[in-house]
Nucleic acid binder design. Structure first.
Lengths: 238, 238
DNA sequence: TATTTTGTAGTTGTAATACATCTTACAATG
DNA sequence: CATTGTAAGATGTATTACAACTACAAAATA
């Protein structure tokens, strides 16, 4: 007889696969609530631990959302969900920080262009609020850095394109950690100046100016922090 | 005193965020082994359940791989690693593609611009080869569609920016499924015409023309297949 | 009756403990 | 020197218990 390799099977893998099938086939439809953990334990005949691990893998994939006290739900399949696959790449491929910033410059410049085209009253109001928040937070590096990112988030939202919003969020997730250092180096005025001008361009529906300013803004930032690749904190956990 | 809202926090979320930071910052490098679950329990001061749930979310995202008996490792960013997180993409059948295509238009146009700036002899050669391959495959929808995508991949490579290259790869993975339908609708000549002109612009280092042509190219495609959202099979995967 | 408050059942979140199973490394054995 | 056995360390699974949150119904109140 022939010998075939035995692959160790994890129960949670089996649960994961079966749950995936149920979602793919539509038996568990988008937006619907899946059986409770207790019910799944009964159905699969396994422990709650195994069920929960499978669920959390699906959460990581953007397929399920857990609402504590309510239940676990199948996500509507939106473009921004599959953009989750970008995260691993941008997260791990810290290949070079400068490449990520270059990518960001493109995204943000074109986001500004699109925002100038599509922003409605609500978007404008959000942008103005974000800008005012920055002015108010001048002097506090941490809060200013957060407000700065919020302005960029508001620009992304004004595009009304959920893929762009998601990609922006991923980029900002990565920048959050070092944004304070950036503010520390670049100061407050540069960001405030550009943000003000960009908002003005968006209000005026001046697409090319908005894009141009945003590109300048990012480039100026990149220039000032060009040595930041080594700056990124390498501190160990704990 | 004032009362401020308390937002419920999940410990596993906090663990997840911190682990993510460690990977983003490169403290846990690709390919390396992260601390054992027991060690993480000690470091975070939480239960093993919370640690494992955070880990499984990262597994679902394609960031970590668990090897039983050995430990848990940060994934190298290889195509095969993020490919298996594509479940959400496979489920997108029923979702709208328009936002994704809009995102693609931006990415590709700016990629073309950057390619015109940075392409070296090798890149040019790769582009020419891809273009010739398209001409040769004229008549065979399937092979032509593949060759078409290869040209765009070659443009991305000419940017010499690994983030852009990988983001392009993701977009193309998604498009592969419907690329044949696109070719079927749009025919061979349009793509060949634009690709030829784009290559010419890249050779001439004419950045703005390269970007403009690529944007036109994608827009033209989008226009022709504007009805494709309903065209895509609504059937579940499986 | 209409409204507010409270209680309760159901659900997910966390913890602690125990043991099973797998991988690796290394010592013991022949 | 090759093989086998063993121990250490890692993840996998199960069990039990309770905490925290949500939604909804029941009760109290106006």
């Amino acid at each position: 007889m022939t010998i075939t390799a035995i692959k160790p099977k994890r129960i949670s893998d089996e649960v994961f696969e079966q749950m995936k099938e149920h979602i793919i086939t539509g038996e568990w439809a988008p937006g619907s609530k899946i059986p409770s953990e207790h019910e799944l334990v009964e159905l699969f005949g396994v422990s709650r631990v195994s069920v929960r691990e499978a669920i959390h893998r699906l959460v990581g994939m953007g397929v399920l959302t857990i609402r504590r006290g309510e239940g676990t739900f199948v996500n509507e399949v939106l473009p921004e969900n599959y953009m989750n696959t970008l995260l691993p790449i941008l997260m791990i491929e810290s290949a070079s920080f400068s490449e990520t910033l270059e990518f960001r410059a493109i995204m943000e410049a074109e986001s500004a262009r699109m925002a100038a085209k599509r922003a409605d009253e609500k978007d404008i109001a959000r942008l103005e609020k974000a800008l005012k928040a920055m002015e108010k937070k001048k002097g506090n590096i941490q809060e200013f850095a957060e407000a700065d990112l919020n302005f960029h988030v508001a620009v992304a939202m004004a595009t009304h394109n959920s893929v762009i919003i998601k990609v922006n969020a991923i980029i900002h997730d990565m920048l959050k950690k070092i944004m304070e250092e950036i503010v520390d180096i670049t100061g407050y005025e540069g960001g405030l100046y550009y943000h003000g001008k960009i908002l003005e361009a968006i209000k005026n529906r001046d697409e090319s100016t908005a894009a141009k300013l945003m590109r300048e803004h990012i480039s100026a930032t990149v220039d000032k922090i060009s040595g930041l690749d080594e700056l990124k904190s390498k501190k160990p956990l704990a």
